[in-house]
Design a protein around this nucleic acid. Structure first.
Length: 496
RNA sequence: CGGGGCGUAGCUCAGCUUGGCUAGAGCGCGUGGUUUGGGACCACGAGGUCGCAGGUUCAAAUCCUGUCGCCCCGACCA
């Protein structure tokens, strides 16, 4: 590309400063911006359109497995949170607490009215296990009430120290699924089923390959028996936890008295799961596929899959070109392709190219006087930059094929990148090298299973065990850190 | 909560050291015109309680005190 003549804002190249690049893309693609509220973001229409697509597709997938949507309160009585010991310990440090219900002007300044102090403070939900269990305890009486399969789309608040748009904000949007089952096996099955649903969504719709597995005790959800996770590699070779699914056992059921009467009449605690993905997925999308020109969106999730740009020199040429562009849009819409015509004459053609490019629109269709004459159109792919000419009669098939190829191409490229940056390591010095300075990678190394050793590794390298992958082959040998006997390799990486 | 930095137009910033005319630039924005196959140009124009509150002074964006907010680096996290 020629030097930028205009004075448009630039996107910092990834190689210069990856974190800056991320911020630039999020901002210039119009996904989100920081707000006046500390740690909280404004999700802009284009970013929210992405979230809506994620919601729509996932919601359908959940419902196929029998899940129903419901809604539970934003506020949780403080005492609820403390009923499950590990849970409260996990979340106590990051809770926003509501203590008053009224404001009062004192010396012209608003302040909470001391007389409106709540008897019991309310916690703004960091997650809803407790309030949902308090409800489940009422809903579940008999084995006939099970399984109970509930999901809610909502916001949650976790008072984080450092925030980054989408990746970690004080308030974020997510879905949290909560299920109750008669047996431990059913709960275990459901936890794994939902992780498979997540995996299918992230791989097939977001074109991001993930490694699934189980978390170690130290990375486990507070109050869970087991936490399952999917981990994706970003372009700086760090891991991003893209979704988790928890087998909660009967921990919450015991805390809240959620029992059912079995066929034999015996009172039994239910076994439960919870599972969630958040707006963080949008951050994953940016970091998995974006390039130095901006966002690159997988066709299956793109709010606009193809942008049609009429090009013309003189006003006399404009009418015919514009008309053709509209015809294209209608033809594509009839095939279910989200196409949009951008015929703004306030921006030059080049400016419009950049506009859609940084927003990651998969395909650009150019139609100008020359093309009208030749009965052709120009197609440019966002991921490869490849430019090609096609007969107008073949518009629908050409676009459909290009979208499919790009969807597959993004996934293949991301997987090749991950595989190329996944290494098996035997010695501590090789391990430390892999994470030296700003380096990261997916490192498969043996671990003896001792949490102290895990903590020591994190201390020295900043790398953590992302998961013990499923279907992990037995591989006896010495632990990479302690030298003690280990029987399998686990996935280490620096993480977001 | 520890360490560093910054608050001046919608955005990025200059001006402050050494107080002094009507507070500036670029981008963006509005109007009109010429433009449009890779970030167009010309002309005119709108836009500011210089974060806030005190103080010093004939005079404060500039000096002093206090205060609030934000950003960056660390410990915690989807």
């Amino acid at each position: 590309m020629a030097a930028n003549k205009g004075s448009e804002q630039q996107i910092t190249p990834r190689a210069v400063d990856y974190a800056r690049w991320y911020q630039d893309v999020v901002s210039q693609a119009g996904l989100a911006e920081t707000s006046d509220v500390r740690g909280c973001m404004v999700i802009r229409p284009y970013g929210f359109a992405l979230w809506e697509n994620i919601q729509r597709v996932m919601d359908g997938m959940f419902k196929e497995t029998g899940v129903e949507n419901a809604y539970f309160p934003l506020f949780i009585p403080m005492s609820y949170l403390s009923r499950e010991a590990e849970h409260v310990e996990g979340f106590a440090k990051e809770c926003a607490v509501v203590t008053h219900h009224r404001l009062k002007a004192v010396d012209g300044k608003l302040a909470p009215d001391p007389e409106s102090l709540l008897e019991e403070p309310l916690v703004v939900r960091p997650t809803s296990e407790t309030i949902i269990n308090a409800t489940f305890a009422k809903w579940v009486q008999s084995h006939r009430d099970l399984p109970l399969l509930i999901n809610q789309w909502c916001n949650v608040v976790r008072w984080e120290m450092r925030t980054r748009l989408f990746l970690r904000t004080t308030e974020f949007l997510w879905q949290e699924g909560h299920t109750a089952h008669a047996t431990p096996d059913e709960a275990q099955e459901r936890a794994l089923l939902m992780l498979r649903v997540y995996r299918r969504f992230v791989e097939e719709w977001m074109a991001i390959p993930v490694i699934t597995g189980v978390k170690t005790a130290s990375e486990r959800f507070a109050g869970a028996v087991n936490t399952y996770t999917m981990e994706a590699m970003m372009q700086d070779k760090r891991a991003l936890q893209a979704g988790t699914s928890h087998n909660l056992g009967d921990n919450f059921a015991r805390a809240f008295g959620t029992q059912y009467q079995s066929e034999g009449g015996k009172l039994t605690y239910v076994h439960q799961t919870s599972w969630g993905v958040s707006t963080r997925l949008i951050g994953a999308l940016v970091m998995a596929h974006g390039d130095d020109r901006g966002l690159v969106l997988p066709p299956n999730l793109a709010p606009v899959q193809a942008v049609i740009l009429p090009l013309f020199r003189k006003e006399q040429e404009a009418a015919a070109v514009r008309e053709k562009a509209q015809e294209f849009r209608q033809r594509l819409a009839a095939r279910g392709t989200a196409a949009k015509v951008d015929d703004r004459d306030t921006l030059s053609a080049g400016a419009r190219f950049f506009w859609w490019e940084k927003r990651g629109v998969p395909l650009r269709i150019e139609i100008g006087p020359r093309d009208l004459k030749e009965n052709q159109f120009v197609l440019v792919r966002r991921d490869t930059g490849e430019k090609s000419f096609h007969p107008q009669a073949a518009l629908e098939e050409t676009v459909a094929r290009a979208l499919e190829e790009m969807q597959r191409g993004l996934f293949d490229r991301a997987r090749a990148f991950r595989d190329a940056n996944t290494v098996r390591v035997e010695t501590w010095s090789d391990f430390a090298d892999a994470f030296r300075d700003e380096n990261s990678a997916f490192v498969m190394a043996r671990w003896c299973g001792d949490p102290m050793v895990e903590a020591q590794i994190k201390e020295e390298t900043k790398a953590t065990i992302r998961c013990v992958p499923f279907d992990n082959p037995r591989d006896d040998g010495p632990c990479v850190k302690s030298g003690r006997p280990a029987s399998e390799r686990v996935l280490f990486s620096k993480a977001y």
